[in-house]
Nucleic acid binder design. Structure first.
Lengths: 206, 206
DNA sequence: AGATTTACGGTACTGACCGTACCCTATTTG
DNA sequence: CAAATAGGGTACGGTCAGTACCGTAAATCT
């Protein structure tokens, strides 16, 4: 007479299926990511933690990396662009938020995933939109207000121009591997590159 | 009666030691890199190809990645910054060279190594100087000439400003995973970002 | 309700491959 | 010529990814 096993471990009372199981797997994977990082996330551990087995995982995701990226989505937090009243203040604050994120444990995971994705464009794109830091929209918001105030030139709305600051910051992490970027670097990016650039050819104030 | 084995394979006549052996290993590793890439470079294959065994490798490099980085050095080629007579021409040509490199098989390997290095700052730094694309020196050369011609402001000599174009290009590869960057992107980086930036606040010509 | 299909759970395995350990032998060094 | 050093051969331990079966619970159909 097989009583419901429901051991002390995570296994639920009844056999889970579909969305419920998928959810449990993703939760387990996200937990493994936060505790051990991607490098030490193994499919076996995820399966055990989710109270299931690898079959159920591979039936849903083709490999370890895609699972991890899917699980990372749960860890990603969305933030709002600041509105400090000045362009410089907005940009600096936005960069500082990004810096804090990249320096956080979650940021470390994101960097691992980026690295593991190697050149896989699709996965990278997926990560991009999840992490959201590459999004042009917040920059356009910030710049829109600045233009209205006369602090920036309309030409700055070009996406490549608008996002330059974040690109430079990300470069510090991805290419230099720094655990965190010193605040001086952020200030430098803002004062030496970003503000001169977005003020445009017709530079008004001091 | 052990005749010298010197099979058709790479094994030399006599037992190699020291620099000669090290050289053979690095050559073998470099060959493996170019043929199979880092992901498929295995220590066993390198050892076999070098006509030796893993002992000799591990006695010199602690792990697979450091061996690969050391071997990559042989693949890296050095190039000279162009001198076309105009700032725009120089910058565009320099970016195009970089684009070609990153798009080449060697560039793919470099990207793999970057990815594999993850956050290991030392290794990343080593790669940086080997690949040389992050070096500020060529940019300062280009800008120096441009300043003399009145095409750029002296403020552009700030390293973070001077290298912005390359940073943006590298971003295309490392973060977006593009196999190659369309020429329009390079032009855009030059015309929308770099030239406006280095011309400085006091923008002279059209 | 019972029959059928679907998807989980358990478990065992293959296959790769890194890194290490041992032991014998060629080369160099003194 | 002896002793020390470094290569070569080989065999493992250990870790994981990914796969293959097979029995069974849960959903779906009739």
């Amino acid at each position: 007479m097989p009583e419901r096993p429901m051991g002390s471990s995570g296994a639920g009372q009844t056999r889970r299926r579909g969305a419920a199981l998928e959810d449990a797997i993703l939760r387990a994977a996200a937990d493994e990511l936060t505790e051990a990082g991607f490098a030490r996330l193994t499919m076996d551990k995820v399966a055990i933690r989710a109270g299931t087995n690898k079959n159920a995982i591979y039936r849903r995701w083709p490999n370890r990396l895609t699972l991890a990226i899917a699980a990372y989505r749960r860890l990603a937090t969305t933030v709002q662009p600041p509105d400090t009243g000045s362009l410089r203040g907005d940009v600096l604050e936005w960069l500082r938020q990004a810096n804090r994120y990249w320096s956080s444990p979650q940021g470390a995971i994101l960097r691992e995933l980026f690295a593991a994705a190697g050149g896989a464009t699709e996965l990278l794109a997926q990560l991009q939109e999840q992490s959201g830091d590459a999004a042009a929209a917040p920059w356009l918001t910030i710049l829109g207000r600045a233009i209205a105030r006369g602090e920036a030139s309309p030409e700055a709305l070009h996406p490549r121009v608008a996002t330059v600051a974040m690109t430079l910051l990300r470069n510090e992490f991805v290419v230099r591997g720094a655990p965190t970027a010193p605040d001086e670097v952020l200030v430098e990016i803002v004062d030496e590159v970003y503000l001169p650039l977005v003020r445009g050819r017709s530079a008004p104030p001091a």
